[in-house]
Amino acid sequence: MTEFLQQVIIGLRIGSVYALIALGYTMVYGIIRLINFAHGEFIMVGGYTLFFMIPVLMGFGLPAWTSVFAAIIICAAVGVLAELLAYRPVRKKGNRMTALITAIGVSLILQNLAQAIPFIGPNPKAITQDIFQSGRIDLFGVNTNWTSIFTIIIAAFVMVGLQLFIHKTKIGRAMRAVSENKAASTLMGINVNRTIVITFIIGAGLAAVGALMYCAQYRAVMTTMGSMLGLKAFVAAVLGGIGLIPGAMLGGMLIGLIEALVTAYISSSLANALVFVVLILVLLVKPAGIMGRNVGEKV
């Protein structure tokens, strides 16, 4: 039982990372109906920013996790650049598929550019510093570490904050309106393009926070870290119901739990494959995801 609880905490820990990244996917998808394949690369950008900023900030005597603010700024900048330079021009000209291909192109450019830049390079780099408080803790008889606790708490905090932001603020209301109907929200005086840029900023910022948690757990950054992480987060978003913020959270936690339990009790090499099997099974039964409603398409 203790071991099971331990696995559950591991699952929740990795699930929190997936959930945060899934939020970025789901928000962008909700607003412009685009699978932002480059979102995984935002995590990578965040990870490398952390890698370079942690020693600098620790030199100033600040705690290591403060470097996340630098990562948020850099990630948001990259996200906005991708939107302005690539997505927006293509959205005007092409159809959904061309937009999707652009997203893949941006993702590959970021990933390969990072590999081609000499001081980043294709080899993984280790983060030696502790990002959160080190050491272990006994929680209701389950032995775990502070990183897990902090990861889960921060994720919960961010999610509640985001939910409040979306439902209580003016910008949040604008975002919900744009995702409902772009043309109508333009008529209501909402600046659609600005709302999309803000969505990208928030999504990329969440990816930076996710990168912090990832680095705290795995203590390494590499240029391809974003592809599998991003993909699983996207699967989480689809599983929960794409476009829905609570869906992304639920999906992320579920994927994390499935992965942890499969790794512990069945086979670690099968975990990735099983995540997709679960996705396919859920899509067979509930095409719009667990929390999504199946809405007929208007002609």
């Binding site: 652009t102 192109g105 590959l108 450019i109 590999q115 081609a116």
Partner: peptide
């Protein structure tokens, strides 16, 4: 030369530029 060591970088640029200017 170091850029050419990563052919996918070139193809990713080609892909993005083609899709931006000639979507089909």
């Amino acid at each position: 030369q170091s850029i050419f060591a990563f052919p996918m970088l070139i193809y990713a640029f080609v892909l993005t530029i083609v899709i931006m200017f000639k979507p089909f």
